[in-house]
Write a protein that binds this DNA or RNA. Structure first.
Lengths: 232, 232
DNA sequence: GAGCGTAGTTGAACACGTTCAAGAAGGGCC
DNA sequence: GGCCCTTCTTGAACGTGTTCAACTACGCTC
């Protein structure tokens, strides 16, 4: 017997064949649309299946749970974010400007989904959840985001302590998670407060980062970084 | 017609009469016990009702949702925490020692419920949730906790910038929320990493707080505090 | 005691996410 | 075509949190 097509190490249903891929996309697209229209909780699996013209069980053949359907959302948002800040990060400049651009475009990219994010957040926040930003399943999205912040740091003309510089992309990603946490809970119209947070916290971060290379702060920076590495 | 008993402004079922209060307690106590034994998700409303010897509907007569049953847990943990750190905070001393004591006893108080907290966390993290630490329903618990941190600050012999000192209790409460966030996701045995986080971050916080009263940092401290007040 | 209104209680019913045994469709091999 | 194995699809069924119309128990007024 000859296996015509070898299954990949991480095989998921319907990723290999044309038919499966088609149904998969159909379900994802329908889900993403409904999530955006009605929020996470109000979009039932039955509704997704019905709108996509398949059975409930079929949706579960492709996705282990309702949560997994949301990874697609992450990718969508990140695509928009990458596109939006590509221009701002193209040419080197002061750290503060690059950071502000990266964070603000991030908030912009998420903006259309504020309602959805609110209803979905509880699922993402759960410790073992596959859609938690810290989970293994989210690794691709997370690493892509860290990579973007690395580009923020790499193109910065500001002088930064080398040890801090190495860890900074990941720390900034963490800061973005914090901002997102605030954003999700932000009930101000148009999430004005979150934008204000970014606008005014970036100069502060810049100032602290700038201070990092002075001798006086070396011990604190060292200690903080080593603690971070230890507990990461 | 004469109303013999005026209903209080925030009247909840079964709070006034003896019979109601009895059933209410019975349900809460049963729920708290089962939560601790089996976790949040595995403890069904049917199981709580059955174990308490009442009907499901009766539980819902006293508590609007399963979530609301958890406020009792908060109180339990906080009672333990208050008791545990009372002694350490009784006599004035260095800020760093008082803070460490407050945070470590907090972690100890939560420790028995780590499993439960993990399964429950997703509910507490939801923006509009009544059991969110930022919600109106949690105000009593929250204020009680802030009060404890105020005592930490008030009894501190360390010199602290006055403006910072005023906001510090709330900021420390926020820090505790951050530590709790880490703790919930901490899978190390016995949550060793969280203890390490407290042990090593308190000196750092202490150092930063100590720096706050030097002239050089006044602008940064001022800006950060005003931003915090604005976005709170 | 009779009547009445509130507080307390019940269990069936609903919609949900998820599971699963069963079957249908498709393609390679004789 | 006939066979077989994998891929794909179905819809009923399970257990969940929550709701609700109906019922009972109690305390008050007459």
């Amino acid at each position: 017997m000859v296996r015509t097509v070898a299954a990949p190490a991480t095989s998921e249903p319907g990723e290999s064949t044309a038919k499966g891929e088609q149904t998969r996309r159909l379900i994802v697209d329908t889900a993403v649309r409904l999530f955006g229209e009605q929020g996470y909780d109000k979009t039932t699996m039955r509704a997704i299946a019905a709108a996509a013209g398949v059975s409930v069980g079929n949706a579960y053949y492709y996705f282990p749970s309702k949560n997994h359907l949301v990874q697609a959302f992450y990718t969508t948002v990140q695509d928009a974010h990458d596109e939006a800040c590509r221009h701002a990060l193209a040419t080197p400049g002061p750290f503060v400007d690059r950071l502000r651009a990266a964070l603000l475009t991030g908030v912009e990219a998420m903006a259309p989904y504020h309602g959805f994010a609110g209803s979905f957040f509880k699922t993402a926040a759960e410790p073992g959840s596959p859609v938690s930003p810290f989970s293994a399943d989210s690794a691709p999205t997370r690493e892509r985001s860290v990579r973007m912040f690395r580009s923020v740091v790499d193109g910065a003309t500001t002088k930064i302590d080398p040890e801090l510089r190495a860890e900074l992309p990941e720390l900034l990603w963490l800061a973005q998670m914090g901002i997102t946490l605030y954003w999700v809970h932000d009930t101000s119209p148009g999430q004005t407060k979150t934008r204000l947070l970014v606008e005014r916290s970036t100069p502060l971060i810049d100032r602290l980062v700038g201070m990092s290379r002075f001798r006086v702060f070396q011990p604190v920076v060292r200690e903080a970084l080593s603690l971070y590495r230890l507990l990461r």
